[in-house]
Amino acid sequence: MQALRATKPTSGLHLEEVPIPDLGPDDVLIKVHAAGVTPGALRLLERGRARTPSIVGHEIAGTIAKVGDLVPGHLAVGSRVRVYPILSCRRCEYCTSGREHMCGEGAMIGFAQFGEKAPLYDEYHDGGVAEYARVPYWLVDTVPENVPFDVAAKVQDVATALYSLERANLATGSVLLVTAASGAMGAITARLAAEFGLRKVVLVGRSHERLEAVGRLTDVETPVVVTSNEEGELDQPTLLQNLHHAAPGGVDAVIDYLPSGGLIGKILPVLKTGGTLVHMGSNMAPLPLPLALIMTKCWVIVGCRAHTREHVKKALQWLREKKLSIDDLITHHFPLSDAENVIAKIEGRQEPMWLTVIDVVPQA
């Protein structure tokens, strides 16, 4: 079969011919129809957090091709399914309380390991940008018939945005600020804003045009604040002036999706006393804040890694009931033959590019 693999941490991603995986008794073999990969996969590879060689891709949807002897009967050959990619020990206090994404042995299929050790990642590190994927049965969710495979693959992003919004602890009528808002997570967060009863979502990013496009995804008011102009990055006084113009009373929470850079430290003064900062960008830059300021402002700073299984169930239910639609957020489809170039196209986008899908099986 063809698969998108990283052979070394800095070798890049390449399509290669590899054997179809053999199954153990607890395994499910999925014929992949739609898959996804993100720039974060390359960054974690370079940091040594991902095993090599390995197949990348943590967003996986397709049909069951084969099952192991111990797989429960509801997961039958031909079933439409998606993968919850978070591997965990299944026995610690987090795993037994529905918080497996916080497990000390946590890892993500086709992505990386988070803890110092991750035994299941050793076994199931290969992901889904391939013709077939092997996963343990307990990570397989059935997909409603009215949810297409491309949408099912991107439920991962929807569930993560849901979790980020919940962690922001927003009351009805709140004002939210979102950084890196012109990307996939910003687009989904904007789409979910009305469901959380938000009054305003301040969209922060580099491109006024792309931010305005995100603003059209919701009926909630979405003022736009750009972080740079033709001369380069805006200085902090100008940036704060623009932010206070967009949100005169400040913001109740910030969801930070920035993967790098020190922007978040420059904009935090707009966060209200008692406000919440949620970070979900895996940014390695330090946060330059004195603890005394955090104390004085009574700020809550929250780390947000992935999401729980309950957020997946909620997202699938909303999609099945048509309470939520993300079809229009999938702006780009790529064939498996072009998978090597997908990350470069995501990072170099010159147009609105929200959710991207690799069609392993071409759509009808």
Rank of each mutant, 00 (worst) to 15 (best):
M1L: 10
A6F: 05
L13Y: 06
H14Y: 04
V18S: 03
V18A: 00
D22R: 14
L23A: 15
L29N: 03
I30D: 03
A35T: 01
T38V: 10
P39A: 04
A41Y: 12
A41F: 06
G48N: 09
R49T: 09
R49V: 08
I55C: 08
E59H: 14
I60G: 07
V67T: 15
D69H: 09
D69F: 11
P72G: 01
P72S: 02
G73V: 05
G73Y: 02
A76G: 07
G78D: 05
R80K: 14
R80S: 02
I86T: 05
C89V: 04
R90Q: 12
C92N: 05
E93D: 06
Y94P: 04
R99P: 02
H101V: 07
M108L: 15
G110W: 13
F111D: 14
K117R: 14
L120G: 00
Y121D: 04
D122C: 09
H125T: 13
G127N: 00
V129R: 14
E131R: 12
E131L: 10
Y132R: 03
V135H: 05
P136Q: 14
V140W: 10
V140M: 04
V147L: 12
V151Y: 11
A153R: 11
K154W: 08
T160C: 15
A161D: 02
A161K: 00
Y163R: 10
L165D: 04
A168E: 06
G173M: 09
L177T: 01
T179G: 02
A180C: 11
A181N: 01
M185E: 05
A187H: 05
A194D: 03
E195D: 08
G197C: 04
L198T: 10
L198C: 04
R199M: 05
K200N: 02
K200Y: 06
K200A: 03
K200G: 02
G205W: 13
L211H: 06
L217V: 15
V226Y: 11
E231K: 15
L234V: 03
L234Y: 12
D235R: 09
P237E: 03
N242Y: 03
A246H: 09
A246S: 02
P248D: 03
G249N: 11
V251S: 08
L258Y: 01
G262E: 03
I264W: 02
L271C: 10
G275M: 15
T276S: 14
L277S: 08
M280G: 10
G281Y: 09
A285T: 15
P286R: 05
L289W: 08
P290Q: 07
P290D: 03
L291V: 15
C298M: 10
W299T: 08
I301N: 12
G303F: 05
G303D: 06
V312T: 06
K313R: 07
L316K: 05
E321Q: 11
K323H: 09
D328T: 11
I330K: 01
H333R: 11
F334P: 00
F334Q: 00
A339K: 02
E340G: 07
N341K: 10
E347D: 12
Q350G: 15
P352R: 09
W354E: 06
L355G: 12
L355E: 13
T356W: 01
I358T: 09
V361A: 12
A364K: 13
